[in-house]
C-alpha cells in the first residue's frame, strides 16, 4: 500500500477507535502505531504527549502530527492529522444532520456509560505499559509520584485550605499540566545532563 495512504488510514482508524479526549487515544496508538506499525516507540509517545500538553491545540491532534512527521516529514504530519479528524467529520455530520437527539437516546446513554468504564481500564493498562519504559532508574519514579500528587491534588489542596481568589488561582496555575511539564523538563536537564549515562529512561 502507498505509505501516505497507509498513514492516513491508520490514523483514521485511531480516530474511529478513540472515545473521549486525547488520553483515550493512547491505548489505540500503542496498539496501531507502536506495536503494529513500529512508527514510534513507547518513549516517543510519552514525549509527544508531554509536548502536546504544553503546546497550542488539542493533544490528540498534536500527537498525530508528531508521529506523522517522524515517519514521513511534513506531508506525513499533515496526512496523519487529517486522518485522525476524518471520521469525526463524517460521523458528526451525519448525527448533526439526522439525529438531533442522539445523546438523549437511552440506548446511547447506556452504551456510553459502559464505554466510559472500559476507557478507564484502557487508560490504566496504557499507563502500566508506559511506566515500564519511562519509570526506570532511581529518579524517574519520584518525578512520577510528585507530578501525580501535584496534578491530582492541586484542586484538593486549595479546597481543603479554603483558599480563594488569587491563592487558589496561583495553585491551579502551578499544578496545570503545561507548567508541570515545563518544570519536569528543566528538572530533567539539571538532574540528567552532566552524567547522562546510566540513569533515566534515555532512548536506546
Amino acid at each position: 500500500m502507498n505509505i501516505y495512504l497507509d498513514l492516513f488510514l491508520t490514523f483514521a482508524k485511531v480516530g474511529v477507535c478513540t472515545f473521549g479526549g486525547g488520553y483515550a487515544m493512547l491505548p489505540i496508538l500503542q496498539r496501531e502505531v507502536v506495536e503494529k506499525k513500529g512508527w514510534a516507540t513507547e518513549e516517543e509517545l510519552t514525549d509527544y504527549f508531554a509536548i502536546g500538553q504544553c503546546t497550542p491545540g488539542i493533544i490528540a491532534v498534536n500527537t498525530a502530527t508528531f508521529i506523522g512527521h517522524k515517519y514521513k516529514g511534513i506531508a506525513g504530519g499533515i496526512l496523519a492529522t487529517l486522518g485522525v479528524v476524518f471520521p469525526s467529520l463524517i460521523i458528526i455530520t451525519i448525527i448533526a444532520a439526522f439525529l438531533q437527539n442522539f445523546a438523549s437516546y437511552p440506548v446511547v446513554a447506556h452504551a456510553l456509560a459502559g464505554i466510559n468504564a472500559a476507557v478507564v481500564a484502557l487508560i490504566a493498562v496504557s499507563v502500566f505499559k508506559l511506566g515500564k519504559s519511562t519509570l526506570k532508574g532511581k529518579i524517574a519514579p519520584w518525578i512520577f509520584i510528585v507530578v501525580l500528587v501535584l496534578a491530582q491534588g492541586g484542586g484538593l489542596f486549595s479546597d481543603a485550605l479554603g483558599l480563594q481568589g488569587l491563592a487558589a488561582s496561583a495553585i491551579s496555575t502551578i499544578t496545570s499540566p503545561a507548567v508541570l511539564v515545563v518544570v519536569a523538563g528543566v528538572l530533567g536537564w539539571f538532574l540528567f545532563y552532566p552524567h547522562n549515562g546510566g540513569k533515566g529512561g534515555e532512548k536506546a
Binding site: 519509570l135 518525578i143 507530578v147 523538563g185 530533567g188 532512548k203
Partner: peptide, 13 residues
C-alpha cells in the same frame, strides 16, 4: 536530559 525528566512527568499526567 530534558526528556528524561519529561517522560515520568508525562506518564504521571
Amino acid at each position: 536530559a530534558v526528556f528524561s525528566g519529561l517522560r515520568p512527568a508525562s506518564t504521571a499526567l
